[in-house]
Design a protein around this nucleic acid. Structure first.
Lengths: 195, 195
DNA sequence: CTGTTATCTGAACACATGTTCAGAACCAAG
DNA sequence: CTTGGTTCTGAACATGTGTTCAGATAACAG
């Protein structure tokens, strides 16, 4: 019969993930204890093990969810012309990352705390994401829309530049996200040599 | 029992720093124990306290040394024209960071493990470094050498882009550092709108 | 109400943590 | 060889670690 028994699985589960997300982002995976997470949730440490087999899986699940969401949200790019596609990518990357600073932070900082298998899986998803940008850059190069010497290098450069925004941008600052997006898009457009 | 040494302050001291540098860079500050560092040095944990008052100071010293070296090595830029100054900055940043990947990694990843005072000091040094680039960008803007909408944003963008190289560049790869420097310089030059 | 079952507590386990310190081991000078 | 000072060991301290599990607790079905 329909599950529904005694309690708060539907509430506690998400709370555990949320607490882990915030604490890992703030203090780092290694510096956060299961007891701290439990305390944030309002529960004893043992109860966490109803929701994750171990601490490592908790980290991995957060990172995997993030990367899966990222890939799913990434706009398709078979239709438009390369310049528009690149612009969409730039704006998408910035707004998606802006909306989930903790997950982004963890995805970049905690790679070394994944075990070998988990690391390989996340790394492959990251590569798939980078490949999407690289594909766009190659397409525009083939069409003569812009001029990049090495698509791989340009890919790294653009992603690093865009992701870096998360380290300083605050919604309460002097610029809105839209303004920052405009300026970054202009820099990217110029950097690849598009008019 | 068999002890190893007698008066090795001049040897053990640097060894402690080196071991801490490597281990912190590889596993993260919080994930590394004093006993691991000691073992790398070939000594018992207690002996480390002849060289550092505590673990926190060990981290801070590494970061402070790195930032001090960075500022000291940064070429002066009062003489040249802005375009050349910017090019020097770009090439300098890339080669300096390339030469000390562990220190760079630590300087970016372990900020949150500094206590409040230490964090403030490192953060100020970082700001001073960024200000140097910002100064260059403003000077070139004033001279009409290039066109950047917002010098602060351009500063962040350029630094993020350049520092990102450390995450993927390997000397054994298909490109030399010089080639990568050339390409990044071209992208930066175009991004700021210089001919 | 009773019976069932998912959820949680609280204690325990075995081991790791940063740090301290008395005393041993060592080196160099006299 | 003796003395003096530096460097290191080995054990200890108090606390924290991830994880397990028997049993208490709560929510539902009948």
């Amino acid at each position: 019969m329909a599950r529904t028994a005694g309690s708060h699985s539907g509430i506690t589960g998400p709370k555990v993930r949320q607490a882990a997300l915030e604490l890992f982002a703030k203090h780092g995976y290694a510096a956060v204890s299961m007891r701290q997470i439990a305390s944030e949730v309002g529960v004893q440490a043992g109860a966490l093990y109803n929701y994750t087999p171990d601490k490592q899986s908790l980290l991995f699940d957060l990172m995997q969810s993030h990367m899966t969401e990222l890939m799913a949200a990434l706009p398709d790019n078979t239709a438009d012309d390369p310049l528009q596609t690149l612009e969409h990518f730039v704006r998408f990357h910035m707004s998606f990352h802006h909306d989930r600073p903790e997950a982004v932070f963890i995805a970049y900082m905690e790679l070394r705390n994944l075990n070998e298998q988990n690391f390989a899986m996340i790394e492959e998803m990251r590569r798939a994401y980078e490949d999407r940008l690289q594909g766009i850059l190659i397409a525009g190069q083939a069409n003569g829309v812009w001029d990049v010497k090495d698509a791989k290098i340009a890919t790294f450069a653009v992603i690093a530049m865009l992701t870096g925004v998360n380290t300083w941008f605050r919604s309460a600052g002097r610029l809105s996200l839209a303004e920052v997006q405009d300026q970054y898009w202009e820099m990217v457009r110029k950097a690849v040599g598009a008019d």
